[in-house]
Amino acid sequence: MILAQSEGFDPLNPRIEIGQWADDLVSWFEDTFKPVLDLISDGLGGAYDGLSNALREPSVILIVLLFGLIGLLFWERFPPLRALSMSFVVVPIVLGGAAGWGVHALGEELESQFLALLIVFALIGWLVRSWAFGIFSAVAFYVVAGMDEWDRAMETLSLVLISVIIATLIGVPLGILAAKSQVVSNAIRPVLDFMQTMPAMVYLIPTLFAFGIGVVPGMISTIVFAMPPGVRLTEHGIRNVDTEVVEAGQAFGSPPLRILRQIQLPLALPTIMAGINQVIMLALSMVVLAAMVGAAGLGLEVVRGLQGLQIPRGAEAGLAVVVLAIFLDRIVAALADRAPVVRASRVRD
């Protein structure tokens, strides 16, 4: 086909058929990797359905588990509790779980589907960051529920969480490789530039062909678009670890993987977390685009608002996206502040 195109090539009036080639490439790719694509499609679609259903109509098990986690955070946050022996950690988890069971029952009683998760978000906001942020989270998510955007917000949250987890699982190891090897670094830099600068909508077209209408092409595009800062900041973080400290590891005979685990990753963690934060923000910025190929959620509401020129619809869905963005951003930033190296740097007598 390429030959056929170039036979009639006129150097003075060139028409280079890159678009056609891209189409051929995508067709070839689809034909060749059909089983793999199906697997990805089923996997992503299944994960999304599972998570969004779980968040929209949280089961008692999920709420009990989440409250168990909150119990753990509570125990870990207050030193007097932590000072008690390690084995007591079971107590706050069990108590938390019991509280979760109670909250879920209360939600059933009041016939409110969002109540339990709203309390979970507020408590996480408090324990991970501050009481003020806990209150903010409670109010903000209550407003989301009040705008009748709760279910769609949970769908968007599911899409973003799954995309971010996958982008991180691919991006961070890639960043580590790039930091270790100049060849890898040189090879992936242009690819990352390409991924970031190519208008995001372009990704929608081939993924649409490969996966059909629905949430999967939106997630794939989101992953591709949001991953680069995760890779870049991981590489940057690891490369910027003080050479002398790495040398210290080598000088005492530590093997490379152990240096990575004990020295490079802990010291680079704040930078890596900043990268993950960027990934989340970029993923959120993709939700509207994802809606164009059929992903449900807040993005779809924005698209409909645009199509119908309905200001209320767009405003409400947009505001809900902002709430999600602020919540995720602050939580991740607070988690980055809990990295051991940041904590140790704050210790004072």
């Binding site: 003080d242 002398e244 400290v245 040398e247 210290a248 080598q250 000088a251 005492f252 005979g253 004990q262 020295i263 802990p266 010291l267 990295a339 051991p340 190296v341 904590r343 140790a344 740097s345």
Partner: peptide, 17 residues
């Protein structure tokens, strides 16, 4: 390195965490 030679660094090279 483990058995025979240790090293002390100019900027201490302690692990801050």
């Amino acid at each position: 390195r483990k058995e025979k030679i240790s090293m002390v660094f100019q900027h201490f090279a302690l692990l801050p965490h």
